[in-house]
Amino acid sequence: MTTALSIRSLKKVYSNGFEALKGINLDVEEGDFFALLGPNGAGKSTTISVICSLALKSAGSIRIFEHDIDNDFSAAKKCIGIVPQEFNFNQFEKVYDIVANQGGYFGLPRALSEQRTEKYLKQLGLWDKRNDTSRSLSGGMKRRLMIARALIHEPKLLILDEPTAGVDIELRRSMWAFLKEINAQGTTIILTTHYLEEAESLCRNIAIIDKGEIVEHTSIKSLLQRLDKETLIFDLKNELTATPVFEKCESTLIDSFTLEVVVSKEHSLNYVFGCLNEQGIQVTSMRNKSNRLEELFLSLVENDKG
């Protein structure tokens, strides 16, 4: 299988001396749905900016579908579509023109560019807004506009930098469905996000970056297998006055109707329910205290701080 993105020893030092990337290595396979996670200021956006040549690298190499971004920049750039974190289109330009012109910058004949503009604006629910200026769009529409613009040259690699930031749940779900669809059609996707639920439900592989270094680079599945305990919240049917005792698990009574239990990997949920049954405690619902990936993410980033 072809490598969609190959980064070797990538360094970025800004003019003020800040070392944003400290020689990272990263590989993303063709067809992957890949998450690049990290806390604020970790180097995610810098990595993306360097890949898209919006920032100049200090050292290292980047290959996009085997095209070196220094020696074969035209072919490399044709493979990439970028959806940046901040809105970066002309606020006074019409929605239609923004997308159609982007096709022109990639050398698409006008007729083809206009045909694809119609296709993607319709797919992303923006066709009715095509003659409006971009500043009149809502935040969610602006995000979708940037996705349509990034897809106009039908790139093999789509990079989205926090595409669902500030987007309501309904729209976020519809964007997930759209991204899953284009990934299924063969487009490799790299996503940065703060919503770890998003990464868990969409992505197959993951890299975690912290302080300019990759601290984890694996599949989501194998990462989740490393989770040695989970914290579960039980909503109770009847009021409790004392914390029930579990021999092999920690438990805390949050309030008289809510119980928190930390279940380690070697114990099954059957054990917990067995204990609850024995003590006559009836459960109405159960959920994870936090996203499973979030717990791992925090432990990896915390470890790195240590």
Binding site: C52, S53, L54, F73, S74, A75, K77, K78, I80, I82, P84, E86, N88, F89, N90, E93, I98, N101, Q102, Y105, F106, G107, R149
Partner: peptide, 10 residues
Amino acid sequence: KSIEEVLVSP
């Protein structure tokens, strides 16, 4: 920042 539209293109 709409210059980025051209800068990311070939």
